[in-house]
Design a protein around this nucleic acid. Sequence first.
DNA 1: GCCTCTTGCTCATACGTATGAGCACCCCTG
DNA 2: CAGGGGTGCTCATACGTATGAGCAAGAGGC
Lengths: 347, 347
Amino acid sequence: MTVRRRDRAPNQADVARLAGVSQSAVSRVVSGDAESARISEETRRRIFDAVRELGYVANPAARAMRKKRTNLLGVHTFEAVFPHAREDFYFDFLLGIEERAEETGFDLVLFTSTGAGGDGRRMVYRDGTNRLGLADGSVLLGVSTDRAELSRLWFDGYPFIHIGRREVPGADIPCVIPDYEAVTADIVGKLAALGHRRFGYLREDKEMEPYTDRRRGYARAVREFGITDDSPGFRGEPELSEEWLDRLATGCETAVVTESVRLANALRARLAARGLRVPDDLSVAVLEGAWDQPDGRWESLEIPRIEIGRIAVDRLIAMLDAPGRRVDSLLVPCSISAGTTVAAPGR
Amino acid sequence: MTVRRRDRAPNQADVARLAGVSQSAVSRVVSGDAESARISEETRRRIFDAVRELGYVANPAARAMRKKRTNLLGVHTFEAVFPHAREDFYFDFLLGIEERAEETGFDLVLFTSTGAGGDGRRMVYRDGTNRLGLADGSVLLGVSTDRAELSRLWFDGYPFIHIGRREVPGADIPCVIPDYEAVTADIVGKLAALGHRRFGYLREDKEMEPYTDRRRGYARAVREFGITDDSPGFRGEPELSEEWLDRLATGCETAVVTESVRLANALRARLAARGLRVPDDLSVAVLEGAWDQPDGRWESLEIPRIEIGRIAVDRLIAMLDAPGRRVDSLLVPCSISAGTTVAAPGR
DNA sequence: GCCTCTTGCTCATACGTATGAGCACCCCTG
DNA sequence: CAGGGGTGCTCATACGTATGAGCAAGAGGC
């Protein structure tokens, strides 16, 4: 006998015909539902024989439509490019998500097509379709989160979880949140323990939650440790101005906390131009995860990204298992990554 | 008015009711089919209004079931763990696949669940379901390819493409293949041009296509360049024996070609134990992609992995667009990655 | 011999979308 | 005003699976 490659996949009806039973009997047996206990051993065998002979496999789309579950978890980023480079901020989150999806038996959909509009924006809703809808639930991430889409997703009752805190009025977005507030206070505490009393704060020109969290943590630490900070950043101005650099040069402040590696690098360069060195003349700590730099490691944060990815998947699955039940956001502690850019105040 | 979070997603029937038209009119308008041109501007507007009001989005499962297209491309590896680490052999393939999927407007499903059986094996067919079936087509990769599953997929008419050559009797597996044969001949040619005439060949103890391809290329080069090779590896024995090392120590052979970095490293270590150095006493080339080593770069291959990933996606899409049409396998040229482990024969 | 319970199935329908066929109406032409 | 042709929709059905309801046959009890 010659096996022919077939063009149409067999369905349960085909199996049923061959086994001499009804389609529903086939469904009961192959899907292993509760009623299937009441199918005789003999019939069951005949059905499985037919399944094997025809090479039947369930149609996932039909199954998904009927059961309203696809066993897929989605991953969507609002950035223009899907973050797949190792260096990328988001890569480790993806790693954790993947690991946990694999362990829990879900497949993962990377929603890359949502960016194919050509306008550089990634949209959830496009052409009258919520692409995420294909997945039972999704993990969202990205700095440029679209609040309107987040809000709509929530009101649509779509199960999702966001990595990083995002707030939308009226909605109650479930997030897994690196605890920037606490670790910021910790890092200030560490500097205070070294003897620093006069601080400067250098902020990004952004008003998103991750930054306001850091600022809240910083402000709290300032109160708590009796620190003096008259820097523009602390008052809310994002400038790294000549005047402030001049003032730093006077040695008035002994420590500066910056919101990003970018700012820290800029600060160091401008200080160097004035003959000042880090950490000898000024201690600098960075409030984000910092890769190794050519000239030493920044005192910075360690965000447990893989862990956060895993947690996000777990919480998402919890939402799927208990629809309707609200899932709270979760703070995940971060640690301090010791670097070579802080020291006891020199003078 | 207070917006309530809804529990059930609206469907076309809901939209139709609100707009005062039939469900099919809604389908025609929102899916933008050919007939939709024959819906009046006025009705179209009413439908879109209703769509907006209800927040309707098409159900992807139902749409997939009806159109038999999900706009999803799958990625399946036969390895136990999904290759997501940068260092991983497969990572760059994934990168290319992702890039191209994004550009062509497909989403990507990472079939991670296929490994959740707990037995360490990744299966396509499990629990009476071909998980890949959810995607319109899939890219398969992995060294430990399961021939039986490959064969079954092919006879089932499922559109897929394999990265790396794999042959299954009776089936006609479409592959995207790094051209190991040609680049192996090239690398031998390069050594021959340096003046090497007596070669040794060190083989892995595996009989898979990627290795037979290399061996074929090597054998061809041996004929073509008039090379002498009496090594065990060339005759088919995978041993790195003491006797052969002794013989190498006599300086009889001036160049050795190995099938893997692993073997090359072992060779170098054993040579060093005999006081021989690479490339001073012996030139060594490696027939696979080699990361940088602590002690210099191996003369080796450069496999255009990203490019291969991209090509795989393109060919897969071609299969989807022309079902039934057979798609040939494609050889992709590799280049030589110059290293520090070959030199002109010294003596 | 009648009733009830259990076993082992089948029937019928729902899920949401897409689409060929068809129908009513209007406009135009001769 | 008959006939033809377009316009703008609706009807009905298919896709493949899952599942509540139901039915026939046999077992068991009185």
